[in-house]
Simulated scan of single mutants.
Amino acid sequence: MRALPQRFGRLIYVTALAVVIGVLAGLSGGSLYNLVSRQMRANDQLPSVLRGPAVQVVVSDTPGFAAFKDGTFAGFDIELVDFLAADAKVRPVYVPSAPFDKLAMLQSGMAHLGAGVVITEERRRLVDLVGPYLISHDGVMTRADDGRIDAAADLDGKRVCAPMGTTTAADAQSGQVRVEIKSLAACVESLLAGQVEAVAADELSLRSIVKARPKDLKVIGDIEFGSSLRYGIALSPGHAADCRELARALREFILSDRWEESFKAHFGPQADAARFRPDPNQLEHCPSA
């Protein structure tokens, strides 16, 4: 039987030790994972995920970001990852996933990187995050011929659909709004069929949808709710050197013409790019080893 590589032996030891400590201390599953994550971050001893020949990147079928059509993905996230992969001289392999499965796929090793991950404190405890490369917020879309909704207060008592597994779904469930949770595609179908009065989602995704169907749908420009959606690249803990390399390449992408060209191409020329562009000198990145 072949012996396990030394790095796996160390990882098994760390994980086994954490299990023993977790049982003794009565830690929950999340706390146990956090303990292992902190140890992996401290050691930064896992092999680089950017030394190819290929890097697996988990993405979700989301309008404007990584829309899946004709057997391939296209969108802002795809152009970004292609840029990062070219910088690292590796080939990106895109792995489709539901939004709520991205972190689990990184934690299980089914993918190396995750694109389009909204940075939150909770997610920082589970994975390493570098970014943001895009700053958005929750917005509202209605049918183009519906003039009843002009402000956030107009949503009270209305039926609103929000995509499952997103921060928007949690943000929308407040006040007197009646929220249905579905996939974004199903939300759009419900809106067009008159089953709901509005769709609440990332404004940029909504703008991408309206860009394709301007006669049927519209984004209500004056409605924002919830906290800012700060999009980053995620990877499992223990790759601090990779994080620093990604942060450097990410800054170059934001400073280049590629950022605005991609933004306009996928979210429409009507969107004010300056509202969504992050400060390239204020990027978060993974802990140093």
Rank of each mutant, 00 (worst) to 15 (best):
S262Y: 03
D222E: 13
D222V: 01
G238E: 08
G232N: 05
D257Y: 06
D222W: 02
L235K: 06
F263W: 03
G221A: 15
I233L: 12
F263R: 09
R213A: 15
A249C: 05
K215Q: 14
V210T: 08
R251S: 10
C243K: 06
R248T: 10
H266A: 01
P214H: 11
A265N: 11
A249M: 08
S227F: 11
E252W: 04
L250A: 04
W259V: 03
A241I: 01
P237R: 12
L250V: 04
A249T: 07
L255G: 13
G226N: 05
E261M: 09
R207Q: 13
H239F: 13
R244S: 12
L246R: 06
A240F: 05
K264S: 09
E261W: 01
P237K: 05
A241G: 10
A271Y: 09
A241Y: 11
A249W: 00
S256C: 08
S227A: 15
I233H: 14
H266D: 03
H266P: 04
R213W: 12
G238M: 03
A265Q: 12
A265M: 09
R248G: 10
L229V: 06
I233V: 14
R213K: 15
P214N: 10
K264Q: 14
A247I: 04
G268H: 07
H266M: 01
R230A: 10
D216A: 15
I209T: 02
K264F: 02
L217F: 06
R207T: 01
L255A: 13
R207G: 03
G232A: 12
E261T: 12
D257A: 12
I209Y: 09
A234V: 06
R248F: 13
A271S: 14
R258G: 00
D272W: 05
D216K: 15
K211L: 14
E261F: 04
I254C: 11
S208F: 00
L217T: 00
E224T: 09
I220L: 12
E260W: 06
V219L: 02
I220K: 11
K211N: 11
K215P: 00
L250H: 09
L250N: 06
D242C: 04
E260T: 07
I233R: 15
A240E: 08
L255I: 08
D257V: 00
E245G: 02
D242K: 07
I233M: 11
L246P: 01
D222H: 12
I220H: 08
D216C: 02
A247L: 08
I220G: 07
G232W: 00
V219Q: 01
G268Q: 01
